[in-house]
C-alpha cells in the first residue's frame, strides 16, 4: 500500500503483542488437548501445555464405558444428540421456510410486528420458557423423552430459522418470480419450483446452524433428560466432572470428540454468522 511503513519497533511490538494474545487464547485449548492424552484424572499438575507421557486411555475409556444394560454409553449419548439435533433442525426449517418467504416477499398488516416478535423471542433467556415448559412436559409425561426435548429446542430453532431464511430470501432476485407470476404460476408453485431450489444454499446454512445450536445446548438437556440413557453429549461431558467425582482426562477426551465436528462447521460457516447476526439486530 501507499501508506508509509512505520518504524521497526512498532512492527515488532505489534507482532509480539498479537503472538502473546494468541498464546493466551490458545492456552486453555492446548491444556485440554494435553489432558486428553496425558494419564491421570487431575486437571493439571503443571502449567505446561506439553504432556509428560502420552496415552490413549481416556479415549479408550470414553468409547468403551458401558451403562447398566450393557450398551456403550458414549455411542448411546451421541445417537441421542444426533437424533435430537436432526429432528430440531427438520422441524425448524420445515415450519419456518414458508413463513420466512412470506415475511420477505408479501406485504400485509402485522408484518413488522411479526418480524419483531421472531426477533424478540430469540432474546428470551432460556429459563423464561424452561420453567413453564418443565411444568407442562412433566404433566404430559414428556420428561426424559426425545420428543419433549425437540419441542423445547424448537422454541428457539423456529424463530432463528425464520430470521436467517428471511435474510437469505431478501437477497434473492425477484425477477424470476415476477416472470413466473406473469406466466400464471400460483404463489405456492413459485415458492416450490423457483424459490426453494434457489434458496438451497441458504437453507443448508440455516439447517447447519440450528443443528449446531441444538448439538451444543446444555442446560435444557440437563434439566429435561435426567435418565442416564437419555443424556445428550453435553450432559454426559458435564457429568464427568461433577463436584464429587471429577475425571478431567475423560472430560478432555469427550470435549475434543464432541466439539471437533461443530468447530469445523463453525469455521466453514462463520462468514454467514456475522452477517446474519448483525443484519438481524440492525433491521427492524
Amino acid at each position: 500500500m501507499k501508506a508509509r511503513r512505520p518504524n521497526l519497533a512498532v512492527v515488532v511490538g505489534v507482532h509480539v503483542a498479537l503472538v502473546a494474545m494468541v498464546a493466551v487464547t490458545l492456552y486453555p485449548v492446548l491444556l485440554v488437548c494435553k489432558k486428553a492424552f496425558e494419564p491421570g484424572r487431575q486437571f493439571a499438575l503443571s502449567a505446561s501445555p506439553v504432556p509428560r507421557s502420552v496415552t490413549l486411555d481416556h479415549f479408550h475409556e470414553l468409547f468403551t464405558t458401558r451403562g447398566g444394560n450393557g450398551e456403550l454409553l458414549f455411542l448411546r449419548h451421541a445417537a441421542n444428540s444426533i437424533v435430537v439435533a436432526l429432528l430440531t433442525t427438520i422441524v425448524g426449517v420445515v415450519l419456518s421456510c414458508t413463513a420466512a418467504y412470506a415475511l420477505s416477499r408479501f406485504r400485509f398488516p402485522g408484518r413488522k410486528a411479526g418480524l419483531t416478535m421472531f426477533l424478540v423471542v430469540q432474546m428470551f433467556p432460556a429459563v423464561l420458557l424452561l420453567i413453564p415448559l418443565y411444568v407442562v412436559l412433566n404433566r404430559l409425561g414428556l420428561l426424559n423423552s426425545v420428543a419433549g426435548l425437540v419441542l423445547v429446542y424448537s422454541t428457539t430453532a423456529i424463530p432463528f430459522c425464520v430470521w436467517t431464511l428471511k435474510g437469505y430470501f431478501d437477497s434473492l432476485p425477484r425477477e424470476l418470480e415476477e416472470a413466473a407470476r406473469i406466466d400464471g404460476a400460483s404463489p405456492w408453485m413459485i415458492f416450490r419450483k423457483i424459490v426453494l431450489p434457489l434458496a438451497r444454499p441458504g437453507i443448508a446454512v440455516t439447517a447447519l446452524f440450528s443443528f449446531m445450536t441444538a448439538w451444543n445446548e446444555f442446560i435444557m438437556a440437563s434439566t429435561f433428560m435426567t435418565d442416564q440413557n437419555r443424556y445428550t453429549l453435553p450432559v454426559l461431558i458435564q457429568s464427568t466432572v461433577t463436584e464429587y467425582s471429577a475425571d478431567w482426562g475423560l472430560f478432555a477426551a469427550g470435549a475434543i470428540v464432541t466439539s471437533i465436528p461443530v468447530m469445523i462447521a463453525f469455521y466453514v460457516l462463520q462468514r454467514f454468522l456475522v452477517g446474519g447476526l448483525t443484519a438481524g439486530a440492525v433491521k427492524g
Binding site: 414458508t98 412470506a102 415475511l103 408479501f106 411479526g114 420453567i131 413453564p132 425464520v162
Partner: peptide, 24 residues
C-alpha cells in the same frame, strides 16, 4: 396467501412459545 404461508410457523410459535410464556 401470506397468511397461508405464515401459518405453520405462526401456529407452532403460538403453541410452543406463546402458550408456555402465558403459562409462565
Amino acid at each position: 396467501t401470506a397468511l397461508g404461508f405464515l401459518a405453520p410457523a405462526a401456529v407452532s410459535m403460538a403453541v410452543l412459545v406463546a402458550a408456555p410464556f402465558a403459562i409462565g
